[in-house]
Design a protein around this nucleic acid. Structure first.
Length: 296
DNA sequence: CGCCAGGGTAGAC
DNA sequence: GTCTACCATGGC
C-alpha cells in the first residue's frame, strides 16, 4: 500500500506522483487552472484548490478533505504492486509504465456526475465536453472559495426540477439534454441505483449491463463510468485511440479484434487491472496522435 | 472548404 | 446479428 499522511491541508505521499498529468488524464472534466500552479475543482460539493508540492499534494478548502482525496487519488491502493504485476506479464505495458511513471486512475466520488459527463462526451471533443458539464453544473447550488464561484454538480432530483426547457436551453446538441433527463428519471424511479453498483459485491458485468439500460450509454460510455466512478478496475473503455493502440502494439500484422471481442481480449490479457492498462494505452496513443498531427 | 472530435441509435437487410 | 446514415458544431 502507498504510505501517505494527511496533515493540515496536505497529503504526503511517499511515492511521488504527477498531479497535473493525472488531472489532465481527462477522466474528470471539472478541473480547470486557477492561479499560478494551483488547479480548481469541485469534488462532492466541495470547491477546492490543489497543487503539487514536494513529496505530495497541498490543497485549500473550507473543510478537511483528506479522506476524500485519499479515495480520489486511490492512495489506499497498492499501485506499485499492481504496476509490478502488469509489467511482469506484459512487455509493452512495462515500457509504457517507464514512460509514464506517475499516471493514476481517479476514483470519482459522484457516479451520477460521471454518467452525465460521459453522455456529454459522445461524438464530442474533450474541451467541449468540459464546457457542457460546467453548463449542466450551473443548475447546482453555488460554492465559493477565495473569491471564486463555482457550482456543486446538481443531483438527479435537481435536474428534474429544473425541467426540460431549462436543460434544453444549454444547447448541448445531439439531444444530450433529453438523455440526461431520462437517466435522472431512471434513478428517481429506482431503475438505476448507482450507489449500489459501486459496491464491491456488484461485479463489472452487472454494473455495465445496468448502465447500458440508459439511452445514450453504449459499451464505451458504460466502461468509462464503471472504471472511473464505480471502482471496476477490469473495465476497458474502447474509443478510437485505444482501438488504434491495441492494433498497433499487439496486432501489427493481423486484424485486431473489435467491439465486444476487443474488451474480452483485454480482460483476458490484462486481468483484473485492465483499466490501468487501458489508461496507459490511451495516454500514449493520444500523445503520439497529437505529435503526428503537429508534423503533418 | 474539408476534416475531425474519447460513439450511439434506429433502421434496413 | 451485422452494416450504415445520421446526429451538430467549433477549431484548425
Amino acid at each position: 500500500m502507498t504510505r501517505f499522511e494527511a496533515t493540515s491541508r496536505q497529503l504526503i505521499v511517499d511515492q511521488y506522483f504527477d498531479l497535473r498529468a493525472t488531472l489532465n488524464g481527462t477522466q474528470d472534466f471539472r478541473w480547470r487552472p486557477w492561479q499560478d500552479d494551483w488547479c480548481s475543482g469541485v469534488l462532492s460539493g466541495n470547491l477546492l484548490h490543489i497543487r503539487q508540492v514536494k513529496g505530495g499534494v497541498e490543497y485549500r478548502a473550507d473543510s478537511d478533505l483528506g479522506d476524500l482525496l485519499q479515495s480520489y487519488f486511490r492512495l489506499d491502493e497498492d499501485i506499485a504492486a499492481i504496476r509490478a504485476d502488469l509489467a511482469h506479464s506484459d512487455e509493452n505495458l512495462a515500457g509504457l509504465m517507464e514512460k509514464y511513471p506517475y499516471l493514476r486512475v481517479l476514483r470519482q466520488p459522484d457516479p451520477w456526475e460521471c454518467l452525465v459527463a460521459y453522455i456529454c462526451s459522445v461524438k464530442n471533443t474533450v474541451k467541449r465536453t468540459g464546457v457542457h458539464v460546467e453548463s449542466v453544473a450551473e443548475l447546482g447550488h453555488e460554492v465559493n472559495l477565495e473569491g471564486e464561484t463555482r457550482h456543486a454538480f446538481p443531483t438527479p432530483r435537481e435536474i428534474l426540477a429544473a425541467g426540460e426547457a431549462q436543460l434544453g436551453a444549454l444547447e448541448l446538441g445531439l439531444d444530450r439534454h433529453s438523455k440526461i433527463i431520462e437517466a435522472a428519471e431512471r434513478i428517481r424511479d429506482g431503475k438505476l441505483d448507482l450507489g449500489h453498483l459501486s459496491q464491491p459485491d456488484v461485479c463489472y458485468a452487472e454494473a455495465k449491463r445496468r448502465l447500458k439500460g440508459c439511452r445514450g450509454v453504449g459499451d464505451k460510455v458504460a466502461d468509462s463510468i464503471a472504471l472511473f466512478a464505480l471502482d471496476k478496475m477490469e473495465a476497458f473503455p474502447v474509443d478510437r485511440w485505444v482501438a488504434r493502440a491495441v492494433a498497433r502494439n499487439y496486432f501489427p500484422h493481423q486484424e485486431s479484434p473489435s467491439g465486444d471481442d476487443l474488451v474480452m481480449w483485454a480482460q483476458d490479457r490484462f486481468g483484473e487491472y485492465a483499466g490501468y492498462a487501458n489508461q496507459l494505452l490511451f495516454l500514449d496513443e493520444r500523445r503520439l496522435g497529437s505529435m503526428t498531427a503537429q508534423v503533418g
